[in-house]
Nucleic acid binder design. Structure first.
Lengths: 266, 266
DNA sequence: GCCCCTGCGTTTACGGCGTAAACAATCCCG
DNA sequence: CGGGATTGTTTACGCCGTAAACGCAGGGGC
């Protein structure tokens, strides 16, 4: 039972990614460089070969250009990575094709938080190798908490909640709880995604001696190994998100019934 | 109000780190290399200069040795980083001086999860620059979820919960929920820690023009900026941990009252 | 028509990185 | 005392990010 998925119903956040290289010109590579082309190329390259494989020279080559050409449009590698993060996060705001995930037309704050959560999760699953970057790049301001990395996003978050009756303190407590939840769940989900594939492309070593880690001294692990390797990420995400929303709703109602006290997210 | 801490009571997980370089010999650097010395040196170096600054050459220099000498004891840089993670995590099991955090003598599973959570949090706060490594290094097995990175730890987790009456499925659901919670909270906590210092050691640029990000188009951010920059990490950690434990207890009781059904972590 | 300026990509070069391989020095044990 | 084993150093290679100088085409003013 390798690489098992839990249920038969498909994961709605797991959408096919196509957006191949543009066919605007018609010739193989007619147009010149430009910052947006570079960032797009970087995202594609990371998706294809992993974050560690991205170097200026290789990115240049993948765009048909020498490494130094990139420096006309990007100050350096670090800024390039910041640009990649920004670009990927801003995908949230484009009202795409199908899109029940467009966060700016929502019905109430719960619906908003659901859309936002699934929107970020969709990004994480579409670009699993980029997500650790989203999680770990030093934020612009100390209160910009990954994975909600744009001022615009935080503003919209706080606006939605305060409009719905949350006090400032409660909205911010909710912001912190929500970002922690998203970061933990999604980072672990993409980590496990990466672990699955990285185990497959490591067929080296003698296949006899160490074909399995020795679990004899770990009886609980041994007994539950088949359960541990099940992937229930989608259901767990949903459950934890609903639990968080319930908790926030409780806070909101308590604060509304007896306002005048200090809010405290319990 | 820069760098504000929430309360007056001190954070119990925030302990002073001293353990300076050993004074075993008496001369400046009498003894030779050895894997453990190298790993200790690496942790110290990362704590002092950050993860990105750690190179084989510099680590060697900090140990009074050429870079290539390290390769007698460590296969390469990647394995060195794995060793650093392993070493830091195993700090959990040493029964130190004061230590109400020793996880192996606990009273019930709730106490165990509290000890474990605070133990990991203590590690994160003691080595904030190492923690992202703990979070993001590819795990040995797909079901080893950061930040609980050792087989021994996962075994002890599952053993404690199943002994307490959790079914295998419930214990594993708890393991996943718990690791997500820890990872999200602690990674964000150390990220903010790093962000605070990294803003301070960037005094460059004209201090007049861009002394503050322009927030005029973000009214909610502007209004709540003072709240956003408050650090309530300790209280939030406690609240979220308690909430998780309540949730798990609910699951446990429901399963015990009407067992025979499928467990589902709600 | 010519000329030069300007924008864009290339070439070259430098120091630092991880690490393979050859080498030197010291120690230990017969 | 002598020779292998052990441990650290030296040298070297290819790749990295990037500074700086260099071609080179296109186009507007004369």
């Amino acid at each position: 039972m390798p690489t098992a998925t839990s249920d038969d119903d498909r994961d709605p956040d797991l959408v096919a990614v196509h957006e191949g290289t543009d066919v605007a010109g018609g010739l193989t590579r007619p147009v010149g460089l430009d910052r947006d082309r570079i960032l797009r190329g970087a995202v594609d390259y990371i998706d294809a070969h992993g974050l560690a494989a991205l170097t200026m020279r290789r990115l240049g080559a993948s765009l048909g250009v020498e490494a130094m050409a990139l420096y006309r449009y990007v100050p350096g590698r670090e800024d390039l990575l910041d640009g990649v993060v920004e670009r990927v996060i801003e995908t949230l705001f484009v009202k795409d094709d199908g899109d029940d995930l467009y966060i700016e037309e929502h019905n109430g704050w719960q619906d908003y938080l659901m859309r936002l959560g699934h929107g970020i999760r969709r990004i994480a699953l579409a670009h699993p190798s980029v997500f650790p970057l989203i999680a770990s790049r030093p934020p612009a301001a100390p209160w910009v908490r990954p994975p909600l990395r744009s001022l615009r996003l935080v503003e919209s978050f706080l606006g939605t909640l305060t409009e719905a009756g949350f006090s400032d303190q409660a909205a911010i407590a909710a912001y912190r709880a929500y970002s922690s939840f998203l970061l933990g769940h999604l980072l672990l989900e993409v980590t496990q995604l990466g672990a699955q594939v990285s185990l497959l492309d490591q067929p080296e070593g003698d296949p006899e001696a160490q074909r399995k880690t020795d679990l004899t001294q770990f009886p609980n692990l041994q007994r539950t190994e088949h359960l541990l390797s099940l992937d229930k990420s989608a259901a767990e995400f949903e459950d934890a998100l609903e639990n968080l929303l319930d908790r926030l709703e409780r806070v909101l109602r308590e604060a509304q019934s007896s306002d005048g006290e200090v809010d405290d997210l319990a």
